[in-house]
Each structure stands twice: as structure tokens, then as C-alpha cells.
Amino acid sequence: MGERSDGDVVLAACDLVVAGIDGPGVSALAGVSLRRPWDEIQPLLGDALLELGLDHHEHNSNEGKALGLRLMARRTLAGELSARELAAWVHDRFGHGLPAAEELARLDDEYDILEYDDRATTDVDEQVMAEVRRITS
């Protein structure tokens, strides 16, 4: 989702190996050069994720985007992101092009027009959080 760099993925694999989670896929990923990780990561990532019991979605697939949306919604529920930050992130990443995120993109537009109507930011925040709960349920 563009939230972490390729180097971060390699370093995470290194952390897994140090923690004793070192199957062949994870170990291969941990061995990727940090100088040009983007050249080597893609063919190794699927095997490493499979080994970890995690789903692998092709880069830029709708399934991957929907999973990223759910993860960011969970971060919002945990208080790591505000409702407005999530709506802005969704609008920036997906625009109005991902059906699962459309309502959050629309609500980001609502934040932008609050200064022209009589609603409070908390009104839109509540709508975002209702959508977050729907996405994470």
C-alpha cells in the first residue's frame, strides 16, 4: 500500500529470522540486498508470505487494496489514525475508484466543505467511524 519501503520489508524479514521464524522463503527475503531491494523482492514475497500463513495479493490488485483498507481501518479503531486522517489516506490512495472505499472518499470531500455549512467536524468523524466499523466487521 506504499506505507513501507522495500527496504522495510527486507528488514522485517531479517527480524523474523532473528526471532527464529526462518523458513526458506523468509530467509531468502531476509537475504535481499538493501541497495536495490525492489529488483529482488517481488519474486520472493509470495513464498515468504505463504510460509507465514499470510495472503499474497498481486501489486495493485483490488483484493490487495481492500486488505490494505481493512488494515488501515483497524489502525483507526486502535486510535493510531484519526477519522480524518483515514478518510484523507483513502481519498489519496484510491480516489473514488475502489468500491469498498467509496464512502470514505466521499466523507473526505465532506471534511473539505465543512467550512461552508453548519455541521461540526465531529459529525463527519462519526460517519467515518461508522464506516470503519462496517469495514472491519
Results as ranks from 00 to 15, higher is better:
Asp39Arg: 14
Gly79Met: 11
Asn60Lys: 12
Tyr116Pro: 02
Arg84Pro: 00
Ser27Gln: 10
Leu67Tyr: 01
Leu104Phe: 08
Leu81Glu: 02
Pro43Lys: 01
Glu126His: 07
Gln127Cys: 08
Val17Gln: 04
Glu102Ser: 13
Ala105Leu: 04
Leu98Arg: 07
Asp6Thr: 03
Ser5Trp: 09
Ser33His: 01
Ile41Gln: 09
Ala88Asp: 11
Gly20Phe: 06
Trp89Ser: 07
Ala19Glu: 10
Asp39Glu: 15
Ala101Glu: 07
Gly23Ile: 06
Glu110Cys: 09
Arg35Gln: 09
Leu114Asn: 09
Ala19Gly: 01
Ala120Trp: 04
Ala12Glu: 14
Asp118Ala: 09
Ala87Tyr: 03
Ala101Cys: 11
Ile113Tyr: 15
Thr121Cys: 08
Leu114Ser: 04
Glu103Gly: 02
Asp92His: 11
Trp89Lys: 10
Ala13Trp: 03
Arg35Asp: 13
Cys14Glu: 15
Glu115Thr: 12
Gly53Thr: 06
Glu102Leu: 13
Glu51Gln: 10
Leu52Asp: 11
Arg84Trp: 04
Thr121Tyr: 07
Gln42Ile: 10
Pro43Ile: 00
Glu102His: 12
Ser27Ile: 00
Gly64Val: 06
Tyr116Leu: 15
Arg106Leu: 12
Ala87Trp: 04
Tyr111Ser: 09
Ala88Asn: 10
Ala19Thr: 01
Ile113Ser: 13
Val124Ala: 06
Cys14Arg: 13
Leu11Cys: 04
Asp112Thr: 12
Glu102Ile: 08
Thr76Phe: 08
Val10Ile: 09
Ser61Glu: 10
His59Met: 13
Arg74Tyr: 03
Tyr116Ser: 11
Val26Thr: 13
Thr121Arg: 14
Leu71Cys: 03
Arg36Cys: 05
Leu50Ala: 13
Asp108His: 15
Asn62His: 11
Leu69Asp: 01
Ala105Tyr: 06
Ala83Thr: 00
Leu69Ile: 06
Asp125Phe: 04
Asp22Pro: 00
Ala48Ile: 10
Leu107Ala: 04
Gly95Pro: 04
Gly31His: 04
Asp6His: 11
Glu51Gly: 05
Val124Ser: 05
Gly7Cys: 00
Gly31Pro: 04
His59Asp: 12
Ala100Ile: 01
Gly25Lys: 06
Val90Trp: 03
Tyr111Trp: 08
Ala120Ser: 12
Val32Ala: 10
Tyr111Met: 09
Gly25Asn: 05
Cys14Val: 12
Ser82Tyr: 03
Asp123His: 12
Pro37His: 03
Pro99Cys: 05
Pro99Val: 08
Leu86Lys: 02
Glu85Thr: 06
Asp123Leu: 08
Leu71Ile: 03
Gly31Cys: 02
Gly97Glu: 14
Ala19Cys: 01
Thr122Val: 15
Ala73Met: 02
Asp39Ser: 07
Pro43Gln: 01
Gly23Ala: 07
Arg119Met: 05
Glu63Arg: 09
Leu107Glu: 11
Val32Arg: 04
Leu52His: 06
Gly20Ile: 02
Asp108Gly: 00
His59Phe: 15
Asp108Ala: 12
Ile113Trp: 15
Ile113Val: 14
Ala105Glu: 06
Tyr116Val: 15
Ala30Lys: 03
Arg36Pro: 00
Gly31Ile: 04
Ile113Leu: 15
Asp15Leu: 08
Leu54Ile: 02
Ala48Pro: 13
